[in-house]
């Protein structure tokens, strides 16, 4: 009853795929193995892991309306490996994109379905999550708030003897509930898919998003990129400029 969870994000730290993979693991029963797909060395490690697995869960970001190129390369290798070793894996997929509409992951899901048909594995559906980057930010905000809560509790303990004054608990609870609300859609569908993965049944495709109206999300997305671009300096290097290639052969 082994399930292999594959984090396909090329990013090393704090990527959205790792967050959704963490949640999906939490909601799945049975033996679980987590792998990260980034380099060719990872491929050589992951393929043997799949040999005695019953299910594989791919967790990946949407790149240009499709599967990232390094994952496509892995899928080609997995197709050959599946045929050589007679694999009949149940394949699940968690795709996330930066735009708010989870439905934008549909082409990626179809590619996975086509891959399963070609490779002899079984397509069991997936969850497409819109606003993945922002949901990941809520995870980081929650971690910061939890750390703050612990620090303030310790300070209160030393100063007043009461580590959990009502105002502190209330503030932390309110913020946590708000973050929980934003994540409600993805939590619901990941719990649902976890149930299907555990039972090895088809979950079909489902799409969800961060729980905010689109017109508000778009403003926050722009503010997010503005802040990151100021920190990284891109704003001062021709942020919107129609740049020309330095060298035609480049």
């Amino acid at each position: 009853m082994k399930t292999v969870f594959i984090n396909c994000s090329p990013r090393k730290n704090f990527c959205a795929s790792a967050y959704f993979l963490f949640l999906q693991r939490l909601f799945t029963r049975g033996k679980k193995v987590t792998e990260r797909l980034h380099t060719q060395a990872d491929v050589q490690r992951i393929l043997p892991q799949l040999k005695d697995a019953e299910a594989a869960v791919f967790c990946l970001p949407l790149y240009v309306d499709g599967v990232p190129s390094h994952v496509l390369r892995f899928m080609e290798q997995l197709e050959s490996y599946s045929k050589e070793n007679g694999l009949h894996l149940k394949i699940y997929c968690i795709a996330n994109n930066g735009f708010i509409e989870g439905k934008q992951n549909e082409p990626l899901m179809q590619v996975f379905e086509n891959f399963c048909t070609r490779s002899g594995n079984e397509w069991c559906g997936g969850v497409g999550i819109g606003g993945g980057v922002m949901l990941n930010v809520t995870r980081i905000v929650f971690m910061v708030q939890a750390a703050q809560f612990v620090i303030y509790s310790l300070i209160n303990l030393f100063n007043t003897g009461d580590p959990f004054p009502l105002s502190l608990v209330k503030s932390f609870a309110e913020n946590t509930l708000f973050i929980l609300f934003l994540n409600l859609g993805c939590l619901f569908y990941l719990v649902r898919m976890g149930h299907h993965i555990s039972r090895r049944t088809s979950a079909d495709k489902r799409y969800t998003r961060i729980m905010v109206p689109s017109f508000i999300f778009i403003v926050f997305a722009d503010i997010f990129f503005l802040i990151v671009s100021v920190i990284n300096g891109g704003v001062f290097r021709g942020w919107f400029a129609k740049k020309q290639p330095n060298n035609k052969n480049e």
């Binding site: 790149y63 240009v64 599967v67 190129s69 496509l72 390369r73 179809q110 891959f115």
Partner: peptide, 27 residues
């Protein structure tokens, strides 16, 4: 064709070309 997607080599080019847009969003 690769599963109804661009080949990995072509998709690699497309993935690396998102700088043709800006980080700002629209509809």
């Amino acid at each position: 064709n690769l599963y109804g997607s661009y080949s990995a080599d072509v998709k690699n080019v497309m993935d690396r070309a998102i700088g043709s847009s800006t980080p700002f969003s629209t509809y």
